[in-house]
Computed example of a mutant assay.
Amino acid sequence: MLFLLTNKKLLIFILTVGVFGILNTEMGVIGILPTIAQNFNVTVTQAGLLVSLFALGIAVSGPILPLVFSGLDRRNVMLLVLGIFVVGNVVSIFTNSFTVLLIARIIPALFHPIYMSLAFTVAGSSVSQEEAPKAVAKVFIGVSAGMVAGVPIVSFIDNTFSYEMAMTFIAIVNIIVFVATLLFVPSMPVKEKRSYGAQFSVLKRPVLWISMIAVLLLNASVFGVYSYVTEYLYAVTHMSPQWTSMTLLLFGGANMLGNIIAGRVLTEYPVKAIIMFPLLLGIVYIVFFAIGEYRVPVTLLTILWGVLAGGIMANLNQYLISSVAGDAPDFANGLFVTSCNVGTTVGSAFGGLLLSTMGVEYVILVGIFSVVLSLIMLLIRSYLSNSAKKWTASL
């Protein structure tokens, strides 16, 4: 506890770099799939299994493994997960078998939700309850960096040096975090162990299920568009590759800024933020759809989109679930990770369907429709939460 009181900044920094390493392992290969296909003599579609099966592993283990490990010393569990990621990364560098590469990705994917869940829980519990959203927001900077910055960094190393060097970069990040956790993070035993049944009991709350659906839809609204934004900027906005790269870089920076803003807004105005962020995102998509062919306005709009997306897909989504299942934090964070990954898969699938059937300019409709549905869920969530509070007050 003394460490948490005097070294909170160092702890949160280690957690932030940790989630960057975990997310970079998941997303970094997206930018080098053609190289992987060539190196392992498979098609790009087959290479894509490295991404889709990783996400499937997360979705399957998300509600289960964080709960299984919830009663163990948190530092030891984090070291276990980081160790598994390091081994998987090292195997990925040296293997010549695509099957082995798949296994080296799937096994860490199963443990991915454990570290993510612990990172949010530890960050939030290291400060007061009022300051928790800000602490979690800082950790989410690592999430955004891993999802947005990791892809171009890994791609750059691959293009400049080699596939092996790109995978080495991913491994080095996780090794650094493993060593930092070993040296600077103290033992963190769970003082109040809740039974699995007690933690599972939060699933009886309708407001939790509504929150999970809202998170799924919000993540679908972001990734249903983001998955195809490069092609959109090429085909609809007619941006050059250089301008497109700059725009996506601005999106990534705005994404990280959105984490900080959302953390502060959720701390001060949580009720308003729950509706405000999705509503603004919906407006951005509508304007996007109307002025998609104009480069400068689209570039500026992409920055605003990045701020809102960063605040929503990280801080807001996590808050929606953790705030209604705070008595089972590890399990709740596992549900958050699963809901986000299912939302990403659903959004990308529908975005791809619209792209193939109607054209890339209509991909924006995935964002609009998903936001509208999420707002309906959030209004239902607000009604259920208020009803629960009135019932509790009457006791």
Rank of each mutant, 00 (worst) to 15 (best):
T16R: 03
A104I: 04
G18L: 01
A119G: 08
V127H: 13
G48L: 10
I64Q: 02
I14T: 06
S144H: 10
V29N: 10
L50Y: 08
L101T: 06
A135G: 11
L23V: 15
S128V: 03
P108M: 09
I32Q: 09
R74G: 01
V122W: 00
S92N: 03
T95K: 03
A55K: 01
E130V: 13
L10H: 04
Q38W: 02
L23F: 14
L79I: 07
M27N: 13
I58Q: 02
A137M: 11
L118H: 07
F94P: 03
A135C: 07
H112Y: 06
L56F: 14
N39F: 11
F3C: 13
T43E: 06
A37E: 05
M27F: 15
L82H: 04
N39H: 14
T45L: 11
I84T: 05
I107P: 07
P63Q: 03
T95M: 07
K138L: 15
G71T: 09
G142H: 11
H112L: 12
A37C: 10
I32H: 06
L82Q: 13
D73P: 07
F3H: 13
V60W: 01
G28S: 14
F69Q: 01
S97C: 06
F85M: 02
K134F: 00
G31R: 10
V68Y: 15
F98G: 08
F111Q: 09
V51P: 09
I103A: 14
L11F: 05
T45C: 00
P66D: 04
T45K: 12
L15T: 03
V90D: 01
A145C: 10
G124E: 06
T16G: 10
L15G: 11
T45Q: 14
E130G: 06
S52I: 06
G71W: 02
V17M: 15
A104S: 15
P63G: 04
G124H: 08
S97T: 03
V87A: 13
V90R: 00
L72F: 14
T121F: 00
M27P: 00
T35V: 12
A123W: 05
V87D: 01
L5F: 09
R105G: 07
T16V: 05
R75W: 00
A59S: 14
V29T: 14
G62W: 02
A104C: 05
V19L: 04
V143Y: 12
M27C: 06
S144K: 06
I14M: 04
Q129N: 12
G28N: 11
V17N: 07
R75T: 03
K134M: 12
N24G: 14
Q129R: 14
T121V: 15
A137F: 09
S126V: 08
V29H: 05
S61F: 07
L101A: 09
S125M: 11
A59R: 05
F111D: 09
F54W: 06
I22K: 04
